[in-house]
C-alpha cells in the first residue's frame, strides 16, 4: 500500500520537470575513456606491435603536443570552417525541403527514394566529378558537406512532419486553422524530437563529408593531413589527427544535444 502511494506522488506543481542526471553519468564516459587508453597502452607494450601499425597513446600525445599548433591547428580551423559552413546551410535547407515535401503526400512519395539515394551516396565518390565541374577550392568542399548532410536532416525531419497524431490534427481542423497555422503551431513543434535526431546525424555526416572532400584532393584540411602523415609513416600524427576529427564530431554532437535539452522541455 505505502509503496504504491509513494510512487504516485505528483510532481511539484507549476514547475517543469527537470531530468536529473546522476553524477555517475558525467563520469562514466571519462572512466571508459581512461580504461580504453590504458588497455590500448597495455596492449601495445605487451604485444610489441610495430609503431607504424599501432603506436602507443602516449607517443601519439607526445607527437601531437609537439606539432599541434604549427601543423594541425590551421588545418583544423580550415576543416572546421568547411563543416560549420556546410552544416549551417544544410540545416535550414533540409528542414525547408522537408516542410515543402510534407505538404503533399504525392511529393513525399516521389522524393523519398531520391533523398535516400543521396543519404547513401558516399560523397567521396562524387568529389572528382565536382572538381571537374568547379575546380577545387573550399567552395567545393562546402558543397560536398551540404550534399551529404542535407538529405539525412531532411529525411528525419520529414518523418517527424508526417507522423502527426490524428487527434492533434483534428484539434486544428476543429478551429478551422490554415495550413500555415497547422504547420507552425502543431506539425513543427510536434516533430522537434525527430528534427533534433536529424540535426545530430547531420553533424556526424558533415564531419565525414568534410573528411571525404579533404581526402579526395587539395592541400588543406585535416583529411589531407591524415593522408600526408600516413604516406610519411608518421603514424602517431596520423592517429592523432584522426582523434581530432573524432573530437570535432563529438563536440558538435554534444552541442546539439545541449540545445535539444533546452528546447525540448516537455519530454518526461
Amino acid at each position: 500500500m505505502t509503496t504504491t502511494t509513494a510512487r504516485q506522488t505528483p510532481p511539484v506543481k507549476g514547475k517543469p520537470l527537470k531530468r536529473k542526471t546522476e553524477p555517475i553519468c558525467y563520469i562514466a564516459p571519462i572512466i571508459l575513456f581512461v580504461a580504453v587508453v590504458a588497455a590500448w597502452a597495455l596492449f601495445v607494450s605487451a604485444s610489441g606491435i610495430s609503431r607504424t601499425i599501432l603506436p602507443s597513446p602516449f607517443a601519439i600525445f607526445r607527437e601531437m603536443s609537439k606539432n599541434f599548433v604549427r601543423d594541425i591547428l590551421p588545418h583544423l580551423l580550415f576543416t572546421l570552417r568547411v563543416i560549420l559552413t556546410g552544416y549551417a546551410v544544410a540545416v535550414p535547407l533540409g528542414i525547408l525541403i522537408a516542410a515543402v515535401c510534407s505538404q503533399y503526400r504525392i511529393i513525399i512519395k516521389a522524393t523519398t527514394p531520391l533523398i535516400i539515394l543521396l543519404v547513401v551516396t558516399p560523397m567521396i565518390t562524387m568529389v572528382p566529378l565536382f572538381m571537374l565541374w568547379m575546380g577545387f577550392d573550399s567552395k567545393v568542399r562546402v558543397i560536398v558537406v551540404i550534399l551529404q548532410a542535407t538529405p539525412i536532416i531532411c529525411l528525419n525531419t520529414l518523418t517527424g512532419f508526417t507522423t502527426t497524431e490524428g487527434a492533434k490534427l483534428e484539434l486544428m481542423r476543429a478551429m478551422g486553422a490554415t495550413r500555415l497555422q497547422t504547420f507552425v503551431k502543431l506539425i513543427f513543434p510536434n516533430a522537434l524530437p525527430q528534427v533534433f535526431t536529424g540535426l545530430k546525424l547531420g553533424c556526424i555526416f558533415s564531419t565525414i563529408a568534410a573528411m571525404s572532400a579533404d581526402l579526395a584532393a587539395g592541400k588543406e584540411g585535416l583529411g589531407y593531413r591524415i593522408q600526408q602523415y600516413s604516406s610519411l609513416i608518421m603514424t602517431e600524427m596520423a592517429y592523432g589527427t584522426i582523434l581530432i576529427v573524432a573530437l570535432i564530431g563529438i563536440v558538435l554532437f554534444q552541442i546539439v544535444v545541449m540545445i535539444e535539452r533546452r528546447v525540448i522541455l516537455w519530454v518526461r
Partner: peptide, 22 residues
C-alpha cells in the same frame, strides 16, 4: 474530445490560449 488532446509542448495556459492564437 474524448481524450484531453493537449499539445505536450505547450504549457497548460498556452494550450488553453491556443484557440485565441488560431
Amino acid at each position: 474530445f474524448q481524450q484531453p488532446n493537449m499539445y505536450p509542448w505547450m504549457t497548460v495556459r498556452e494550450n488553453v490560449m491556443l484557440p485565441l492564437r488560431v
